[in-house]
Amino acid sequence: MNTLPQQLANGLLLGSMYGLIAIGYTMVYGIVQLINFAHGEIFMTGGFGALSVYLILPDSINIWVALPLMLIGGGLVAVLIAVGAERFAYRPLRGAPRLAPLITAIGLSLALQEAIRNFYPQADKPRVFPELGEGSYEIGSITFKNADLFLIVAAVVCMTGLAFFVRRSRTGRAMQATAQDPDTAQLMGIDTNRIIVIAFAIGGFFAAVASVAYGAKYGHVEYRMGFLMGLKAFTAAVLGGIGNIYGAMVGGLVLGIAEVTASAYIDGIPGMGEFGGSSWANVWAFCLLILVLLVRPQGLLGERVADRA
């Protein structure tokens, strides 16, 4: 049985992955009030993009040299698909009833899954993904692998980078303005279409980073992996307050930690003996979502929708 610190660390790692993916849902929603339900599949294609780069590189290559190239390759694939979806699927539907982009997103999800399953070599089964070396480390009672180290570092770098970008850069400021009042943002001279593209691109890149971390941590990527991860990350975004980037990070971490600790400890509660273990983890994750939304419908860090201009 793992110790409590180890469980918390596992939760933090899983939560970082959720948080990275959740950014894509929340930024897009914050700016165009669209739930991009194809984002889970964008996450999945990022992993396959990175795997392709790895397979092209010579076998002898050092994994730490390959990793940045894999991130670039996977990022490129995910960003292109995300931006392409915006340009050719969602943009023509702006102003259409909300159901139209939603159905489009579901169609796009299925198309991406089937495209990978049918056209990526041997992708009808999980494909082995490089694990970033054998190394494993210990801090106190916590053990972690290279893949975990990569995930934590990547999450911290991406999240702080994004926070700085949104707060300090000219484009980030324009992004905030567009999210708060898109018409008025145009009156300032902001090309809001460009801002929307940037939001999709950032979401796609972060999802690709998460996908590389997923592949490295679990040792495989799979055409179906975007469904559950996407659903969980979307849950994290709603939990934290959709539209709020800090909410996505917090929601991801809360969800990850809750899920891991619930599966580890809930069977210790008298009468709950049957409900422990990872098979119940998803149930607890969604229970948490429902509980939080009952108390705070706007999510942990969300603002009431009424104050949106």
Binding site: Q176, L187, D307, A309
Partner: peptide
Amino acid sequence: SPEGRHIFPRL
């Protein structure tokens, strides 16, 4: 300067 002011409330 639009009707209803439309300042960016959270900036």
